[in-house]
Amino acid sequence: MSRAKIVALFPSVKKSLFISSPETPGYNCVGFAAGDDTRWWWPQPPNVAYWPPGIPRALQLSSFVALFATLGYEDCDGEEFEDGFEKIVIFADANGTPTHVARQVASGSWTSKLGPLEDIRHSLRGLLGGPYGHIVRFMRRRRQDAR
């Protein structure tokens, strides 16, 4: 998708947008946030997307929180960069159904995989007001290289 089309979907992202990969349907935002760019992670439908064993295959925030908890993340207050920690943020639609996950990078900026399209770098606020809805949860864990 061209930069112009991404900006059309997320008008607030214009200044911070950097496209950092080619398009691919090989993985999605959840896998990307979890550090896996080889699989599409989603709880449903069964058999055709990856979801870690033991995590409820329910399209609910609690399933996504449980998923990232198994990866060492815990709830935290906000988007501010904290030295020694990496954060993820979960977006949801008006019904509270998860739509997207983004990951914070060491610079304090954020990175996302846009569905089957590209990876991007962006400000967190840049994705608000678009198809992903609003922020419903921040989580953090100690950076792997800081352990």
């Binding site: 998708m1 979907l9 709880p43 439908p45 399209l59 089957p116």
Partner: peptide, 15 residues
């Protein structure tokens, strides 16, 4: 379908 799904990450929504 590829055009309409756009940036959707939800497999359940895509199908």
């Amino acid at each position: 379908w590829r055009i309409e799904r756009g940036v959707v990450s939800s497999m359940s929504e895509m199908v």
